[in-house]
């Protein structure tokens, strides 16, 4: 029995937080255990078997759990910091991943190599892990250093007057933001590969069609490609934000509007800059101009709808008591 108790006390001592005098704590627990054992022995009128001693320890609990109760900090990140932790984590994840995808997208367009976007995706996945680790370590540390919680809360301070007015925009449904994300990411992938890398079957299809017609695309298409790719990336990012934070409907709508505007600018530059095909003229050029014009019109309607949604604000709730 003694060895069983000794082993248990040793395990508790090992697991105790560093700022606790282990011998002090284990001596007290030892006395409690022995008092219990003696009480039980008096009841039974004999010494306890190993199994009976083990039952006492089992009732006492896992040494790691017993030891952890002596710690000053009982959680990785406590309830005071948790809301700041979540908002910082989501913001950092969205910003870092969005930046990497945009940089990857631009580099894919500039170098005319669609695979660059995929390697950017790969880097982005690694960044997710890093961002999660770094943010978690910072908050867990703040929970543990003296005054850390108060200092971090001061950094995150809020001002009642800076709170945003409630928007008329309802939260974005996760199903719709997910669909939007997938659709725009796919569009982005096709667009990134469209400039000659010929890795997506669709490109080969377009190239075959054009070569059958004895036509090739001119450089005039470049602004349209860049514009729609950046636009699609912006909308994909907007969708990602809305998926993580359905309440962020205003940010979502603003980014969508920006995406439409960027795409319109790109398409308009192509439209203005001259021959779309080599050789120019003919029915193909007409179809090209009509398609560009139609795309601009659709995007313009989309942008106007976004602006209208953003301008309509819900009336502020004004309870009588808050006016005085």
């Amino acid at each position: 029995m003694t060895t069983l108790f000794e082993r248990y006390l040793h395990a508790v001592g090992e697991a105790l937080p560093k700022d606790v005098v282990a011998a002090d704590v284990t001596a007290e627990i030892a006395d409690d255990l022995h008092s219990r054992a003696e009480e039980r022995e008096a009841e039974l009128g004999r010494e306890l078997t190993d199994e009976e001693a083990a039952a006492i320890l089992r009732e006492y609990g896992d040494p790691r759990v017993v030891a952890a109760r002596y710690g000053r900090v009982q959680s990785l990140i406590g309830p005071e910091l948790l809301p700041y932790y979540w908002s910082t984590l989501t913001l950092a994840l969205v910003v870092v991943v969005a930046l990497e995808l945009v940089v990857g997208g631009i580099s894919a367009i500039v170098r005319a190599d669609g695979l660059r976007f995929f390697s950017a995706l790969d880097v982005a996945v690694h960044s997710l892990v890093w961002v999660f680790t770094i943010v978690t370590v910072i908050f867990a540390a703040a929970e543990r250093v003296p005054q850390g919680r108060q200092r971090l809360a001061r950094v995150m301070r809020w001002d009642p007057r800076a709170l945003a007015a409630p928007s008329a925009l309802p939260p974005v449904a996760r199903s719709s933001s997910l669909a939007e994300f997938i659709a725009n990411t796919l569009a982005l992938l096709v667009l990134l590969d469209a400039r000659g890398a010929h890795r997506v079957p669709l490109d080969r299809l377009v190239a075959t069609m054009l070569s059958d017609l004895h036509l090739t695309l001119t450089v005039a298409w470049q602004p349209a490609l860049v514009g729609t790719a950046v636009g699609a990336a912006l909308v994909a990012i907007a969708a990602m934000i809305a998926f993580l934070r359905p309440q962020a409907a205003v940010v979502h709508e603003m980014l969508r509007m920006l995406g439409s505007v960027v795409a319109i600018v790109g398409l308009a530059m192509t439209l203005a800059s001259g021959p779309l095909f080599d050789p120019g003229g003919g029915i193909a050029t007409t179809i090209g101009y009509v398609t560009l014009g139609a795309a601009i019109a659709v995007l313009a309607v989309q942008a106007v709808l976004s602006v209208r949604a953003l301008l309509v604000r819900a009336p502020m709730p004004t309870p009588k008591s808050a006016r005085g």
Partner: peptide, 27 residues
């Protein structure tokens, strides 16, 4: 009082308290 007798006293008064709570609380 010491821990064990304190726990017994509380128990007799109808307030059972397990030692995993009591000792850290005393500390």
């Amino acid at each position: 009082r010491y821990g064990y007798t304190l726990r017994k006293a509380l128990e007799e008064a109808g307030l059972e308290m397990d030692e995993g709570t009591l000792y850290p609380l005393l500390r």
